[in-house]
Computed example of a mutant assay.
Amino acid sequence: MTIAPLKPRCAGCGISLQSDDQKKPGYVPASSLDKEEAVCQRCFRIKNYNESSSITVNQDEFLKLLGGIASTNSLVVHIVDLFDFQGSLISGLQRFVGNNPVLLVVNKIDLLPPVTNWNRLRNWVQKQAREEGLKVVDVVLCSARRNIGFDRVVEALNGYRQGRDVYVVGATNVGKSTLINRLISDYSDLKRELTVSRYPGTTLDAVHIPLDDGKSIIDTPGIVYAWRMSEIVARQDLAALLPDKPLKPMTYQLNARQTLFIGALARFDFVEGERQSFTVNVSTGLSIHRTKLERADELYTQHRGEMLSPPRAEDLNDFPEWTRHRLKIAPNSNQDIFISGLGWIQANGKTGALVDIHAPKGIKVMLRDSIL
């Protein structure tokens, strides 16, 4: 019996390489197909020219790959984005991973103020994970980009791995590849790096990184959640939407019947309640405009795509229509209004409030315990 040779895989995103069709994933010129540590054309252009790509892999393939973890004996590292916690958490992860232990790594803590009470934040994460049905053996807070808390990530892996493979899972754009590149330098002799970019879905297939003890770190493709704002904005607007520096909370003293626009991405209406303050936590790349509720519809119609942007005027036709979410904030409840992929608005008043959130159809909007 003849055994077919293994197909070479891209060292950046893990996809099988091919030289037949430039429009399909894994394309590489035939002359480069047999090179050691070859990268596909897509990864090459992302890394060297910061270009995006419309090539994606079917979501069913993502779930099939995730479902195979249950039959292994592995440590599962679930990376979530602190800025978009409820939007990036895989709440149904337990049914995919079986009895394998789950280590929850919370990335991008550098976006919060330096005076943050980290013990309180860790307790907040544990409580939110439990409420979402996720059982974890531990929670580690870190920033892969800023090299904050990475020693604790390595320590946790050493403690919980116990000679097993490590599967790294998460939603798109939570920093998986950035974190794994750090792990490669600590755990492996490999010279290569995974492809890292702002664009969702950079990893296209499972990437196996051999460890010195014969086991592997397996980077899985990001789960695409349509309820996140980062999945629906134009690619050129991701830089404005996704913060890469500490947030600068903006606090507004509002009377009832006042409105805040966050670009043309969302609208916050303070419908009823005593005068109180609301603190907006979004990327500094976004503009916030205040107006009276009675003028909000007119302002949106006249200025969306221009003064109110992103999205820009040329992208409005492809942007979903807004849906209204009515939320009641109870007195003395200390809550955030969370808009997945966009950020959150902290309600600071103690007397309660009735608010409306207008956001693109399908985007997750919810009340949660305040993160800060």
Rank of each mutant, 00 (worst) to 15 (best):
S88Y: 02
S88L: 02
S88G: 00
S88C: 03
S88I: 00
L89W: 01
I90V: 13
S91F: 03
S91I: 04
G92V: 04
L93V: 08
L93H: 04
L93M: 06
Q94M: 15
R95A: 05
V97N: 09
V97P: 05
G98L: 11
G98W: 10
N99R: 13
P101D: 10
P101W: 11
P101Q: 13
P101V: 08
V102S: 12
L103Q: 13
L103V: 09
L103G: 02
L103W: 10
L104I: 09
L104E: 06
V105W: 02
V105A: 03
V105Q: 01
V106G: 05
V106F: 13
V106P: 10
N107K: 07
N107C: 04
I109T: 14
D110E: 08
D110N: 03
L111W: 11
L111G: 11
L112K: 01
L112H: 03
L112G: 02
P113L: 06
P114H: 06
P114F: 11
P114D: 07
V115K: 04
V115E: 08
V115T: 10
V115Y: 07
T116Q: 09
T116R: 12
T116V: 09
N117Q: 07
N117E: 10
W118H: 05
N119W: 01
N119D: 11
N119I: 07
R122W: 00
R122C: 09
N123T: 14
W124F: 15
W124E: 11
W124C: 11
V125S: 08
V125T: 09
Q126H: 13
Q126L: 15
K127W: 02
K127I: 09
K127C: 03
Q128A: 13
A129D: 08
R130L: 15
R130D: 14
E131P: 04
E131Y: 07
E131K: 14
E131N: 13
E132M: 14
L134A: 04
L134F: 12
L134Y: 11
L134M: 13
